[in-house]
Simulated scan of single mutants.
Amino acid sequence: MQMNILLIDDSSAILTLIGDYLKKLGHGVLVANSGSDGITMIEHDFPDLVITDLSMPEVDGFEVLEFIYNDNPDLPVIVMSALDNPNDIIRALRAGAWDYVIKPIEPLDIIEFTIERVEKKLELIRKNLEYKNNLEQMVEERTNFLNIVLNSIGDGVISTNKLGDVLYMNPEAVRLLGYSLEEIEGHNLNRYFKIFNSKTSKEEVSIINKVLNGFKEPVRLNNIVLVGRKGDMFQLSSVATALFSEDGTLIGSVLVFRDITDEYELQESLNHKNKMNSMGVLVGGVAHDFNNMLMLSGIMGCAQLLKAPKRSLTDDNLKFVDMILKSSKQGADLVKKLLIFGHKGKTMLLFF
């Protein structure tokens, strides 16, 4: 790897010696004979690598390291120090130096070897950064895809932490509750998710509390009515599931619920129609039997026979017979209406 290397040392001889060697290796070389000049060149010439002596007058190598750490901490630095100052090397490494060489530098191949170690570290950092960026991109893509899925499904979805505080709501949940995520994020869901039994109208125990208090299996709750922010009521079917980390620790819950108001009302209407149909069939059957009692073989038939001349009934008795016939006719008209009702009920029953 060809690099643009900045050498910082107050010794012109060392700058020339190391500079010529680095040029032979194919590197570009910048030189500074003081720490202050080196800092200036770092700011304006943007070297790929800095090799600096630690012991210099005025601005020494430690100040150069401090500047690099604050201004460009990713810039690799190799420090040079005399053999009798090991504590300086330790201090420099703690201050951010990547590697070091001991003066006097003999042979100069040590410089090449040290630069190669820095290059390997740079390559490792580059690969790690590339992997991190790819991983972040993959996570972002999957997160976006998951958000699209959650935002597109027709069910309401709410997730909470282990305390029941809201972390996420999809658009359908926002529609049903009447609250935006920004309004209730971080607040306990039970304050907003008010549900009642659709049969008894009694308030139901929070389904979220059940899964957060030890239910490891999904908890289903049907026949419930959700009262939204504006008083709107929605018939729901719902299921809540506890969320666990890989080590089995409870971390939260997810609630999925569906608005089945239209289906519920349709089913109630069908149930009512079926009841009416059954009643119609029953009424029709009773009316049919009653009609048989009224007709020729029944009450009306007998009354007609009583009016025959050979019966020789008195006028008073004939009046009673006429009353029977009149009442029977009224009963027959009523039976006719009941038969029509019963016939309709039977027809509807067969149709459905």
Results as ranks from 00 to 15, higher is better:
Leu65Thr: 03
Glu63Ile: 01
Glu141Val: 01
Ser237Arg: 08
Asp259Tyr: 10
Phe67Met: 07
Ser237Pro: 05
Gln267Thr: 15
Asp315Thr: 15
Ser159Thr: 06
Asn70His: 13
Ser245Asn: 12
Lys319Pro: 02
Val225Gln: 02
Met138Arg: 14
Met1Arg: 11
Gly228Arg: 00
Phe113His: 12
Leu124Thr: 13
Glu106Leu: 06
Tyr192Trp: 02
Ser180Asp: 05
Lys337Asn: 12
Phe46Leu: 10
Ala13Leu: 12
Ile111Phe: 06
Phe290Leu: 14
Ser269Ile: 15
Asn128Gln: 11
Ser328Phe: 07
Ile102Trp: 03
Met348Leu: 14
Gly284Ala: 11
Ile148Asp: 09
Thr314Val: 05
Asp71Tyr: 15
Phe257Asn: 13
Pro86Glu: 07
Leu167Ser: 02
Ile105Ser: 10
Lys199Met: 09
Gly28Pro: 08
Lys121Gly: 00
Ser34Pro: 05
Phe341Gly: 09
His187Phe: 08
Leu349Trp: 04
Asp262Thr: 14
Met348Lys: 14
Asn277Ala: 15
Ile158Gln: 01
Gly35Pro: 12
Ile89Gln: 07
Ser159Met: 06
Leu65Tyr: 05
Ser312Asn: 14
Leu255Phe: 13
Ala97Asn: 08
Leu226Gln: 06
Val211Tyr: 03
Ile90Ser: 12
Pro86Leu: 09
Val59Pro: 12
Leu212Glu: 11
Met1Trp: 10
Ser328Gln: 03
Val149Leu: 11
Ile224Ala: 03
Glu130Met: 04
Val157Cys: 04
Ala303His: 06
Asn87Pro: 02
Ser55Asn: 14
Arg94Met: 05
Tyr21Ala: 04
Asp20His: 11
Val174Pro: 02
Met1Gly: 13
Glu217His: 11
Phe46Lys: 08
Val281Phe: 15
Ile68Asn: 11
Thr241Cys: 10
Ile207Asp: 06
His272Tyr: 13
Leu6Phe: 05
Asn274Glu: 15
Lys307Trp: 02
Glu204Tyr: 02
Glu66Tyr: 04
Asp20Lys: 12
Asn151Lys: 04
Gly280Gln: 08
Ile208Asp: 06
Ile90Cys: 09
Val166Ile: 01
Pro86Thr: 06
Glu141Pro: 00
Glu172His: 03
Leu124Glu: 15
Pro57His: 12
Ala242Tyr: 00
Lys319Ile: 11
Val139Tyr: 15
Glu58Val: 10
Val50Pro: 05
Asn274Ser: 15
Phe193Trp: 05
Thr52Ala: 04
Ser327Tyr: 10
Leu349Met: 13
Leu306Tyr: 04
Glu141Tyr: 03
Gly345Leu: 06
Pro171Thr: 00
Leu226Asn: 07
Asp289Asn: 13
Ala173Asn: 01
Asp74Glu: 14
Val31Cys: 13
Leu226Ser: 03
Ile148Gln: 07
Gly298Cys: 07
Val64Gly: 14
Lys103Ser: 06
Val227Ala: 04
Gly298His: 08
Ala97Ile: 07
Leu339Thr: 11
Asn291Lys: 14
Lys202Gly: 04
Leu75Cys: 05
Ile340Pro: 07
Lys132Asp: 08
Lys310Val: 14
Lys121Ile: 01
Ser81Val: 00
Gly301Val: 11
Leu177Asn: 00
Gly231Gln: 05
Pro76Ala: 08
Val225Phe: 01
Leu250Glu: 10
Ala97Trp: 09
Gly285Val: 11
Leu181Trp: 00
Arg258Asn: 11
Leu25Gln: 14
Ser253Lys: 11
Leu49His: 03
Gly331Arg: 00
Glu116Pro: 07
Met56Ala: 09
